[in-house]
Amino acid sequence: MADQHPSSQCGCGSGACGNGGSAKPSPASIQFKKPASAPAKSAVPAAAAPPSRRQFVGGALRGAFLFVLGAATSLIARVSQKERTVWQIDPTKCIACTNCANHCVLTPSAVKCVQQYPICGYCKLCTGYFEPEPNALNTAAENQVCPTGAIERRALEDPYYEYNIDEELCIGCGKCVVGCVVFGNGSFSLQIRHDRCVNCNECAIAMVCPADAFVRVPASQPYLLKTREKQG
């Protein structure tokens, strides 16, 4: 309360002094009582007034606060890296537990299955596409593992098949990832799609990820894709 009006700055320290006028019982008398020199409307009433102890203390404290803020900022600026970060899933840690499908603040989740073609085996029996014990290797409902039918199976030259993810349908449940990682090359992996992710301060899925697979990565390299080299 730095900008107390002048009448309260009599310095006697007593509320009674400043309240001299209102001590009178008649309300009418108050309404017409007016100090002579007060600007009726000013955004900066205190600026014109002579500096008082309160103003001095206020100014000093302001300076102190600014100093603390500046110090903290420079400290943070020094420790903080320049590079912006975004969330991503580390496929080596991911256990495809289905939390990604259910805990994202977005519906459907910003996490999608990503097909990394260079390491895909183009298997005829794709364990990410088919049920563990498929009745037949065709696109019939009873054979598919994807709950939303988001994997598209396309025949290439015999016996190879290409598998594509329809991201509009994919909900990021990771059922196919489990199949592919456990039995296949692991070319399916869950990734945060940055065209959808709003990059929350604290990712809601990261909070519930049992495998600690959510990491902040530099925005310039926002994906953690497996490559053939990494496969060894």
Partner: peptide, 20 residues
Amino acid sequence: TFAAERFPPPEFEPGTYTMP
């Protein structure tokens, strides 16, 4: 837990297939 390259990716004849 982390898959290895169990099924080597096929080597398509050049020009027959472009990998998406």
